[in-house]
Nucleic acid binder design. Sequence first.
DNA 1: CCCTGATTCGC
DNA 2: GCGAATCAGG
Length: 170
Amino acid sequence: MAWTDERVELLKTLWAEGLSAAQIANKMGGVTRNAVIGKVHRLGLSGRATPAKPQRGCGPTLARREETAPVAAKPQQRQEMKPVIPEPESITALVLDSGDLTTVATIKNNMCKWPIGDPARDDFHFCGQPAGTGKSYCTYHARMAFQPPQRREPVRRPAAAQIAQRRAAG
DNA sequence: CCCTGATTCGC
DNA sequence: GCGAATCAGG
């Protein structure tokens, strides 16, 4: 199984989506998680999970990284990811004439590869809208790809606090 | 023991 | 460039 351009695109998409290397390898097939990780490294996509990884420390290794790039932590769960992928109503996934959505198998090179839904689920599909030759996303998603998602404050539980306050108040 | 990614090294 | 083996952490 060679790493074709489309395969790499899919890899990058799923990797950016938050799928684990094993999950990506499983979805793509023909490759192991090691292969996925190796490719990810070669692509320079590494640095998603694992906040700090100085090196192996004790071992037959000598080279090391002098700097560590702390990145957003990744929620680690059991083969079920819940990525926060906004699904605006304005954007509707392209539905093929066959009735299928733009899935991993049907997506083409000139179609928007913006992931929609849970990659771990069966109904996971892509935007599929015309993305222009050589582009990975449609105009809308291309903007989103370059626009950092607005940071929402962590979900708080005002209910408990309010109850406590109400109790204290009277 | 299960999982995860990171790195090395032979091909 | 590729990926198994290995390492290291959760």
